[in-house]
Design a protein around this nucleic acid. Sequence first.
DNA 1: ATACATACC
DNA 2: TACTGGTATGTAT
Length: 282
Amino acid sequence: MDSTKETSNTYKEDLLLRMGLNDNKAGMEGLDKEKINKIIMGATKGSRFYGNELKKEKQVNQRIENMMQQKARITSQQLREAQLQVDRFAMELEHCRDLSNTIVHVDMDAFYAAVEMRDNPELKDKPIAVGSMSMLSTSNYHARRFGVRAAMPGFIAKRLCPHLIIVPLNFDKYRVVSKQVGICLAPTSICSWVSCRIRSQLQMPRQDWPEERRRYFIKTGNSAENGIAPNTMLAKVCSDKNKPNGQYQILPSRQAVMEFIKDLPIRKVRYVILRRQNFCCF
DNA sequence: ATACATACC
DNA sequence: TACTGGTATGTAT
């Protein structure tokens, strides 16, 4: 039914989504995406990586096609039964809704880059990235203005920003700083989990999260945004609501939670959907 | 049961 | 020249 032109257009869009700039990151608002994508595609075209991505794209389209066919075979009877099942499940979940916890999710902003800038202040007002010509782990906010971001190969980043400074990774250093952050957070929390380098989640009474503790991160050359919510999933999702270095709280009431998730893009909770068995309910 | 694919950072 | 690597999970066969 679709004209070939239309399908090839959406195909191109899919490809751009796959390989082009993902600007869904703090500090990347209002970039000239078209120009940046042109440079990225110019650098990537014809590479082995490109060929591989093309192949994957085709596989995904095939799978979508299969699902559509399956969907077409669903009867209204099956649909009703499924709906009932879902409703029952939702009621069960509602029944065990627990708003008694307070989780603070702390997310260090451009962590590796922040540590490198702390240790070499000359880098502070220059565009830098941490990683290698093959792969970047993160970039600072100056670099993000050029479209340079995490998970981008360094050689492409150099084309976007020729004077970009690429600092090699120092995992040992990040581990040390990460530990310091953990020590700083530990006293007030009932229990906490600090990931190997970037994030941590704490369970704590709300009043034990004073502003001056939050500011600790800024003093050490880092900033951190945090999310406060009745569960880990919401704390994580709402932590990047006020990036960089902001704070967002979802109050522990059913209404506040509902309000927050009402217009939440499903993409944001994908992580939890995949691991939904590890969590209770919203 | 296994390999292969996806998602996260 | 060059498009991570560790981990957890989902899907296809």
